[in-house]
């Protein structure tokens, strides 16, 4: 399966650099009151995202419901993965009381509940649901422990990076709060699946900009003297769907160009 290429961020000289990430001009202009028509023209001129070029793509929409549908899409993918996992010989061969079976059963439940939450909450709050997506797991060998757990790790890490990167696009505090309730569970999953594959990799530099202290005899002085930040490497919606779309059939691939 495709593996995200992680490019470690350069160490930041100051938080100002990290906290002040680019905003594109069209968003800026929108907030300053440029008319919808002019914004539309700008959007047409700026849309150069290859990942969104599939005319059959599922557009998650705009605004808070665009973000929630984006989350719904990712949860559908995860729920489908853990459900299909249960039919493969890796899972069916696990001992009834084994830690791995307990873990994978829990993950199948949690992800199904997350997907069903969005399926109910989006229309209940006035949004329009995207359709049910058709996953493409042909790159995953469900009879292989290595293949299954590698895929699980990638999905969980991707989910965490996606929620963290999308929170900024929510305007309703309630939705932000609920996204927070879910993402930490995804991070717990990610930590354990990573530990399951390679113990002590619950945090590693591919997913977290790990902090390395300046050497000292009794911990660094000051404590925060060193390189890195200890921050999760969140991903933008377009970065996420470039990966997620590899696991969705034509006609179910995601277009997130409306999230901004």
């Amino acid at each position: 399966m495709a593996t995200p290429n992680h490019t470690p961020a350069p160490d930041e000289a100051g938080i100002g650099n990290r906290l002040l990430q680019p905003i594109d001009r069209r968003l800026f202009l929108r907030y300053t009151g440029v008319t919808a028509a002019a914004t539309g023209l700008l959007l047409a001129g700026c849309d150069d995202d290859d990942n969104n070029s599939d005319s059959n793509a599922v557009n998650v929409g705009t605004g808070d419901f665009g973000v929630l549908n984006y989350a719904f899409a990712l949860e559908q993918l995860e729920a489908a993965f853990y459900t299909q996992l249960r039919t493969g010989s890796y899972y069916t061969g696990l001992g009834a009381n084994s830690a791995e079976k307990q873990i994978l059963d829990d993950l199948a439940l949690h992800e199904k509940i997350h997907a069903d939450f969005f399926r109910a909450a989006i229309p209940a709050n006035g949004g329009t649901l995207i359709k049910d997506l058709e996953p493409d797991f042909s790159s995953i060998n469900f009879n292989s422990k290595d293949s299954v757990l590698k895929a699980a790790q990638d999905f969980e890490d991707l989910g965490v990076a996606a929620y963290n990167g999308a929170g900024r696009y929510l305007s309703n505090p309630l939705f932000l709060s609920i996204a927070g309730k879910i993402v930490s569970v995804e991070a717990r999953h990610a930590g354990l699946i990573r530990d399951l594959r390679a113990y002590n990799t619950f945090v590693a530099n591919d997913v977290v900009d790990v902090f390395t202290p300046t050497p000292g005899s009794n911990g660094p002085t000051p404590f925060s003297q060193g390189t890195g930040t200890g921050l999760e490497r969140s991903k933008t919606p377009s970065e996420v769907v470039a990966i997620a779309n590899n696991f969705l059939k034509s006609g179910s691939k995601l277009n997130v160009s409306g999230i901004s």
Binding site: N164, R168, V183, R188, G191, G230
Partner: peptide
């Protein structure tokens, strides 16, 4: 976003 990127790392720790 920075706070969210700390929050998930704390959850990894808890796990």
């Amino acid at each position: 976003q920075a706070a969210l990127n700390i929050h998930s790392v704390e959850a990894r720790h808890s796990s």
